[in-house]
Simulated scan of single mutants.
Amino acid sequence: MDTYGHVAIVTGGGSGLGAATARALAAKGAKVALFDINLDAAQSVAHEIGGLALSCNVSSADDAEKAVARVIDELDTPRILVNCAGIANAGRIVGRDGPHDLELYRRVIEVNLIGSFNMLRLISNAASKLDPLETGERGVIISTASVAAFDGQIGQAAYASSKAGIAGLTLPAARELARFGIRVMAIAPGIFGTPMLLAMPQEVQNSLAASIPFPSRLGKPDEYAALALHIIENPMLNGETIRLDGAIRMAPK
């Protein structure tokens, strides 16, 4: 799908992978709406790229439905969705203070997995009513998994299972939505230079970078965005989770 002139929604668009993807889509002529719980951050990126910023808790049906309705009203029906919103709380199943906090586990699942599904269901429903493009496509949906979906470390029970859920969602969603000409993909990043990671001490960043076989550095958000654009533009990419990780395989801890 050629992105030019089409409406794209990027969740978590105020920073990191989402902000880089929003910029890349806008540079390719897409009309971009940025959803983020941090409206100020989303507005900053939106002002830079000429996009629309909306506050949205992606795990809330009401929030997401209202935000999507505004996008349709102000921009048009979206054909592209890139789910980048997510949280990465850590905790052991059995820690020094007892069992893992169940509400924390639920929160991670709600934001990362349910939030991605929430947006997927709304955008696929809207795009299914559009006329198909020359390629037969009506839409493209990309969610963000993680290498933790496959190599989850100690302390990542909540995060890894939420990301594994996204990987597991991708193929059945692609199969179901194929009749509408809507493709569904996921990207599983490795260790990327997002604001959360860049806030860590430099020695920690260096150690993490050294664990990546090649290139031995942190991934760049622009590299995630480049893959997202390629997925959108390549109609044969469907129903798959692509690792973007420099060949890293995470150790147990």
Rank of each mutant, 00 (worst) to 15 (best):
Q202Y: 09
I109F: 06
I141M: 10
T77M: 04
V204Y: 10
S116F: 01
Q153A: 15
A24L: 12
L122V: 11
G239V: 00
A149C: 12
A158W: 01
L130W: 03
S143A: 10
N206V: 05
R23L: 07
Y4A: 15
Y4T: 15
I9Y: 01
G14T: 01
L52I: 07
G16F: 00
A64P: 05
D76C: 08
V111K: 04
S55C: 11
S55P: 02
H100K: 10
P132K: 11
I231G: 05
A33I: 03
I242L: 14
V111G: 09
D63S: 08
G168A: 13
A228G: 08
S207G: 15
N118I: 02
D40T: 14
V140I: 10
N118V: 04
V58D: 01
P201Q: 02
P201V: 02
E103P: 05
A33R: 02
A164S: 13
R243P: 06
Q153K: 13
A251D: 14
V58K: 00
I37K: 12
F117P: 05
A46Q: 06
G13F: 03
G29Q: 12
A178P: 08
L75W: 11
R243Y: 07
L52V: 03
P78Y: 08
L102G: 00
A158P: 04
I123G: 01
P221F: 07
A30F: 07
M250V: 12
L54A: 04
E65K: 08
L34G: 02
D36W: 05
R79I: 02
A164Y: 04
V68L: 15
I141F: 06
T170I: 10
K66W: 02
A188Y: 06
E110D: 15
H47R: 15
G219V: 06
P252W: 11
L120F: 13
A226V: 03
S146K: 02
A247D: 08
Y159Q: 04
K129Y: 08
A158K: 03
A19M: 10
F214S: 13
V10D: 14
Q153M: 14
A225M: 11
L39A: 12
A64R: 03
D245F: 01
R179K: 15
S211A: 14
A174Q: 01
H230P: 06
N125P: 04
G5L: 02
I109E: 07
T21C: 01
A67W: 00
L102R: 03
I114V: 15
T194I: 07
Q156M: 14
T194A: 06
A90I: 09
G86W: 00
Y159C: 00
E134V: 12
P221R: 12
A148G: 07
G51K: 06
I49N: 11
A148D: 05
K66Q: 14
G190N: 12
A42N: 04
D36F: 06
V147I: 15
R70W: 06
T194N: 05
L52D: 04
A160R: 00
P201G: 02
Q202E: 15
N83D: 08
V184G: 01
R70D: 11
Y224C: 12
S161A: 14
R121P: 04
T170R: 05
A88T: 09
V71D: 04
D76N: 14
G14W: 00
D36P: 09
D101Y: 02
A67F: 00
P235H: 13
H47Y: 07
Y105I: 06
A209V: 13
M119G: 00
G190T: 11
S60N: 09
Q43E: 13
M236Y: 15
R183W: 09
